[in-house]
């Protein structure tokens, strides 16, 4: 029997689901192997049970938590799909801004004042605590990146079909860069999150002439102290260093600690 897979999204741009839909050349082959029961970007159904639930997006509100727990209860295997689900992504930067300031920035002072005095709207303040999935439920596998890497998605699907776990080596982006013979961005006088960031992305940003912004989250063995020192040597001030860490890693302990 084909495994039933489902896609769900929380606070996200749905770009990861799009990244998967974009694998047009192999999408039909994948659909031969699995039964897609929920996919907001593609169709709309509900099922009582999922073999694999792919979840995109970060968790903000109380109702998100409830919905996520509900999916977890129905899913045998739960995959965090993309940077929002794995490490909070850019929206977690709002964790460092006072809720009222944030609200005022987005909706203006008048709206903010109204919301502050109206108890019916107080639930909105929970928006301001952005969490990755694993802050709420057990996550079985992480597909990192903003967006996810199709090859990693494929590896995960194939592994599960074979009855085993996917394996993503905890190596820095530097490994991908060397495999691609990239000139180190430091040679261009720039700085990079690559040495502390989970690789496996095929160093796509550096290949294209940009630097690594760390969208795949910090490695478990990341030498953050040395990395900060390195940034300082390149005349990056501490405020900017903090900002670089919080760009994608704001909901991670490291991003909070810098």
């Amino acid at each position: 029997m084909k495994p039933k897979i489902a896609f769900f999204d929380f606070a996200s741009c749905e770009g990861c689901q799009l990244a998967i839909l974009n694998c047009e050349d192999i999408l039909l082959d994948i659909l031969n192997l699995v039964e897609l029961v929920e996919f907001r970007e593609a169709l709309s159904e509900t099922a009582p049970r999922y073999d694999v639930a792919f979840i995109e997006g970060s968790i903000h509100r109380d109702e998100d938590i409830e919905r996520l727990r509900n999916i977890r209860a129905r899913a045998t295997y739960l995959v965090a799909l993309g940077a929002c689900a794995c490490n909070g992504n850019v929206q977690a930067r709002s964790n460092f801004v006072a809720p009222a300031v944030n609200y005022g920035e987005v909706y203006g002072d008048e709206a903010r004042n109204r919301v502050q005095v109206d108890p019916d709207h107080w639930g909105l303040w929970s928006h301001t605590r952005v969490r990755p999935l694993d802050a709420v439920v057990k996550v079985d596998a992480y597909l990192r990146g903003c967006p996810v890497v199709p090859q990693e998605f494929l590896h995960l699907v194939k592994s599960l079909l074979q009855g085993t776990q996917p394996f993503f080596p905890p190596n820095a982006v530097c490994v991908d860069c060397k495999m691609n013979e990239n000139e180190c961005v430091l040679e261009r006088g720039l700085t990079c999150m690559g040495p502390v960031t989970w690789g496996g992305c095929n160093s796509i940003c550096v290949n294209k002439g940009y630097v690594c912004d760390g969208c795949r989250g910090t490695l478990p063995h990341a030498n953050v102290e040395a990395h900060i020192e390195l940034m300082r040597e390149h005349k990056i001030d501490d405020r900017d260093i903090r900002s670089r860490y919080r760009l994608f890693m704001g909901a991670e302990p490291i991003g909070r600690g810098v």
Binding site: S159, Q162, G163, T164, Q165
Partner: peptide, 9 residues
């Protein structure tokens, strides 16, 4: 690990 899971099946 990965392989032994499959071997067990």
């Amino acid at each position: 690990g990965r392989l032994t899971q499959v071997l067990h099946d």
